[in-house]
Design a protein around this nucleic acid. Structure first.
Length: 411
DNA sequence: CGAGATTCATGTGAAGTATACCTTTAGGCTTAA
DNA sequence: AAGCCTAAAGGTATACTTCACATGAATCTCGTA
């Protein structure tokens, strides 16, 4: 009874602290999805993008646009911003303009041509089944939908390199070709890529049509990041919350990571959240450090947590085996065969069906793509050929992943 | 001793299978006239 | 008779399996110096 009351009071306290003394004025502003009214240090790019897609306001097909630059350099932000402005203008002028935004990073949304197309159709308000239709039937539906009247469609593919890496550039080619089947409507494509070399890997046909216009976003430097952060933090936090040097530190940390503004904003926001949780009222420098750690950990934990069961089992097998190798042979690399054995054992324990080694091999390759592990195909000469796998993550994090997996797999 | 053959463990591609889900179609039932 | 529902038929995407062949350097073999 006593215990219970104590707990209640604790909860009460937590709630109160959140209600009473939030250090945030408007947390939204620090979210990376937030589009501010002005985008500092990107004025040039904004006007470039705007002038490229402006012809759509005269119902002319704008050039296809390819935008590239490292993460957090404002590519998505600029495009979204221009998109919003354009939509506003088009409403004024009473022009139908459709600008679906597709994020190719999300695996469930866009790892096949079919899903990408389905996603676009969904964005346009057309209901499509998640499976069961031939892909070209979707194309037909798409064409019918679009071509019903004179209008311009600008499809934005964010992180387009991810999609192409998975399924090849065929679909882009198909997409650029749709225009020839359209009578009234026209389609333009905006591709956004984090990978600077991406365009070189494309099929020449696709490259020339996608890259009618190209814009490069170069990284922010620390000073620019500071300005961005200052501006947003003024609106996001109550006055006096952010201590001296915090912004500078966030900016510096992010600048080190190739000037990633998103990273900088996340740092500031998470730092704020951590402060709030501790019921303090000032963001100090050490909270920035905590935030940094937190972000890195969370991202990877989330990646592991959202994997399907078989993937998790495979990953657990990898972790376990690496730990064992470290203990027993002081090695930090393992091979596919051993992983598969341990994986099979884990499957038996959890009464899960065992996938073939062929499949597990593919799963391992996917983990490599995700950056959770480091896998290289090597030949061990007389002793065959295999993937050499290691993990380059802090031990503490691996430990956390381990317990997370144990939990979710019910072991 | 060195060039070429051998070998191993698994990478990798192609084709096939199971499952889940979709559309179409036709028959049967209900309903309203 | 028209409208609606349901089940069967026919079809697809996706995740996975099966089969078969490809790889590539350590190791072996064997002819030659």
């Amino acid at each position: 009874m006593k215990q219970k009351r104590g707990e209640n009071r604790g909860i009460e306290e937590i709630f109160n602290s959140f209600v009473k003394q939030s250090i945030f004025k408007n947390k939204m502003i620090l979210q990376s999805s937030y589009t501010p009214e002005t985008i500092p240090h990107r004025e040039k790019q904004v006007s470039q993008v705007a002038s490229i897609i402006a012809p759509s306001l005269r119902l002319e097909k704008p050039s296809n646009l390819f935008i590239y630059g490292l993460t957090g350099t404002g590519k998505t932000l600029v495009v979204q911003y221009v998109k919003n402005q354009l939509m506003k203008k088009s409403q004024e002028l009473n022009i139908t303009l459709l600008i679906p935004y597709i994020n190719c990073k999300l695996k469930k949304v866009a790892d096949t041509e079919y899903r990408i197309l389905a996603e676009i159709l969904n964005k346009l308000g057309e209901k499509v089944p998640s499976t069961g239709l031939p892909t070209d039937a979707l194309y037909r539906r798409f064409v019918n939908l679009i071509d019903s009247k004179k209008q311009i469609l600008i499809v934005i593919f964010d992180e387009i390199d991810q999609a192409v890496k998975r399924i090849g550039d065929e679909f882009l080619y198909n997409f650029t070709r749709i225009n020839t089947e359209l009578n009234k409507a026209q389609i333009a494509i905006i591709g956004i890529s984090n990978d600077l070399k991406f365009i070189d890997t494309l099929d020449p046909r696709v490259r020339s049509s996608l890259g009618e216009e190209e814009i490069l976003f170069s990284p922010y430097n620390a000073l620019q990041l500071q300005e961005i952060l200052k501006k947003r933090s003024n609106e996001a936090f109550k006055t006096g919350v952010v201590s001296e040097g915090v912004i500078e530190k966030c900016a510096a940390l992010a600048a080190r990571e190739h000037g990633d503004a998103r990273r900088a904003l996340d740092l500031l926001r998470i730092a704020g959240e951590l402060v709030e949780r501790d019921t303090k009222d000032k963001i100090t420098l050490d909270y920035v450090d905590k935030a940094k750690e937190r972000i890195e950990t969370d991202k990877l934990l989330m990646a592991v947590e959202t994997q399907p069961k078989q993937f998790q089992l495979t990953f657990l097998a990898i972790i376990r085996l690496l730990k064992k190798m470290k203990r027993e042979n002081n090695e930090d690399k393992i091979f596919t065969g051993d992983i598969f054995n341990l994986y099979s054992e884990l499957c038996r324990k959890t009464k899960t069906e065992i996938l073939t080694q062929r499949r597990v091999s593919d799963i391992i390759a996917e983990f490599d793509m995700l950056g959770l592990i480091n896998a290289t195909v090597i030949s061990k000469g007389r002793y065959g050929r295999t993937r050499e796998i290691r993990i380059d993550l802090p031990e503490q994090l691996v430990e956390k992943m381990d317990s997370l997996l144990l939990n979710s797999l019910g072991l």
